Measured scan of single mutants.
Amino acid sequence: ETKSLTLVLHRDSGSLGFNIIGGRPSVDNHDGSSSEGIFVSKIVDSGPAAKEGGLQIHDRIIEVNGRDLSRATHDQAVEAFKTAKEPIVVQVLRR
């Protein structure tokens, strides 16, 4: 079962304390579909994302501050987090 969660993150020394993997390839599949998503791959101990109620590894990131990342490329997702103003509201899907 997958549930949708909304989390609020604040940077600590400029970092949110997690890494992402995935992202849509720069070239779409011929039918326009994509199974890619942006997923949390690593969480830094005691970083902002590790706090209670924070992110978990394998969370799929859907949205950052209202910006849809469900079909974003990896670079677009990285840029969305880099430029996001605080508080950073992150919507994820968690299995």
Rank of each mutant, 00 (worst) to 15 (best):
G47T: 09
D75M: 09
I20M: 12
I38H: 03
D45Q: 09
S4H: 11
R94S: 00
T2F: 15
R60A: 03
E86S: 08
G23E: 09
A72C: 08
V64F: 15
E1P: 04
R24Y: 13
K42Q: 15
S70G: 05
E63W: 06
S34K: 13
R95T: 12
G32W: 09
E52H: 13
H30K: 12
S41D: 15
P87M: 01
I38A: 02
I57Y: 05
E36S: 12
Q91A: 05
R24N: 13
K85D: 13
L93Y: 06
K3I: 15
D28P: 09
R60P: 01
T2M: 15
D68S: 07
H58T: 05
G54M: 10
S26R: 09
L93A: 08
H58Q: 10
I21Q: 14
L9Q: 00
H30N: 10
D75E: 15
P87Q: 02
T6I: 06
S70Y: 13
L16M: 14
R67A: 12
V92A: 03
R95W: 05
G32R: 12
G32Y: 13
N29Y: 12
R67H: 15
E86G: 05
F39L: 06
T6N: 04
I61G: 01
A49S: 11
T6F: 10
G14W: 03
V92K: 03
D12I: 15
G47A: 12
V44D: 13
D12L: 09
S35T: 13
K85G: 06
L55D: 00
V89D: 03
E63T: 15
G66P: 02
A50D: 14
R95P: 14
H74Y: 15
N19L: 05
I57T: 08
T2A: 06
R67S: 08
D59E: 02
I62K: 03
P25R: 10
V27E: 09
T6P: 03
S33M: 08
Q91Y: 02
L5G: 01
L5Q: 04
D31G: 13
K51A: 12
G53F: 06
E1M: 14
E1K: 13
P87G: 01
F39V: 05
S33T: 14
I43K: 02
V44R: 12
I88S: 01
V89Y: 08
G17R: 03
I21V: 12
A72I: 03
H30S: 12
E52Y: 11
S15I: 07
R71I: 07
E52A: 12
R94D: 01
R94W: 00
P25L: 09
Q76H: 12
D75N: 13
L5W: 04
V92R: 00
H58I: 02
E86N: 08
I88P: 02
F39M: 05
R94G: 01
I88K: 00
R71A: 08
K42R: 13
E52S: 13
D12W: 05
S26K: 12
K42Y: 11
D12Y: 09
L5M: 11
F39H: 05
S35H: 10
T73R: 05
D68I: 03
P87E: 03
I21P: 01
R11L: 03
G53L: 06
F18R: 01
N65M: 01
D12S: 12
I61E: 00
G32Q: 15
L55K: 00
G17S: 04
V44G: 09
D28C: 10
S15Q: 07
I57L: 15
G17I: 01
R60L: 03
E63R: 11
I21K: 12
I38K: 01
G37Q: 03
G23S: 07
S46L: 07
D45T: 10
R60H: 11
S70F: 09
N19Q: 13
Q91E: 09
I43E: 02
L7I: 15
S13C: 14
I62W: 04
G17Y: 03
N65Y: 01
V44S: 13
T2P: 05
S33Q: 10
L5N: 03
R71S: 13
S70L: 09
E52W: 08
S15L: 07
V27N: 12
D12K: 14
S70N: 05
V27S: 12
D75K: 08
R71E: 11
L7G: 01
G53K: 09
D59Q: 01
D28Q: 10
S70I: 05
T6M: 09
S33K: 15
H10Q: 15
I43H: 02
A50I: 08
L69A: 01
S33V: 14
D68F: 00
P25F: 06
G37W: 02
E1A: 10
T6C: 06
D31S: 11
R95I: 06
L9T: 03
H58V: 01
G37S: 02
D68E: 04
V8Y: 15
R71G: 09
I38D: 00
D68M: 03
S15W: 06
F18P: 00
I57F: 03
S34I: 10
K51C: 11
A84D: 02
K51W: 07
T6G: 04
A84K: 02
S4K: 14
D12C: 07
D31M: 10
G54F: 06
I57W: 03
I43F: 04
I43A: 03
I21L: 07
F39Q: 04
D59W: 01
G17K: 05
G17F: 02
G14I: 06
I88V: 10
V44Q: 14
H58D: 13
R94I: 02
I20P: 00
S41G: 08
I88F: 04
K42E: 15
R95Y: 07
G32F: 15
H10F: 10
L5C: 07
E36G: 09
A84S: 05
N65T: 00
L55Q: 00
H10R: 14
L9K: 03
G53V: 10
V44K: 10
S33P: 11
F39Y: 14
F18G: 02
I20L: 08
I38V: 08
G37D: 03
G32S: 13
D31E: 13
I43Y: 02
I38W: 03
K85Y: 05
Q91S: 10
F39I: 06
S15R: 12
G14S: 07
T73N: 08
R67C: 11
Q91M: 05
A72E: 03
T73G: 05
D12P: 05
L93Q: 11
H74L: 15
I43Q: 01
S15Y: 12
A84Q: 03
G47N: 11
S46V: 07
L69M: 11
D28N: 11
G23R: 09
G66I: 01
T83S: 07
L7N: 02
L69R: 01
R60F: 01
K85L: 07
V90L: 08
G14A: 07
S35N: 14
E86M: 04
D59A: 00
R95M: 07
S15T: 10
I21C: 10
I88M: 06
L9F: 09
D45R: 09
K3D: 14
I57N: 06
R11G: 04
R60Y: 01
G23I: 11
D68Q: 04
G23C: 08
F18W: 00
R11S: 05
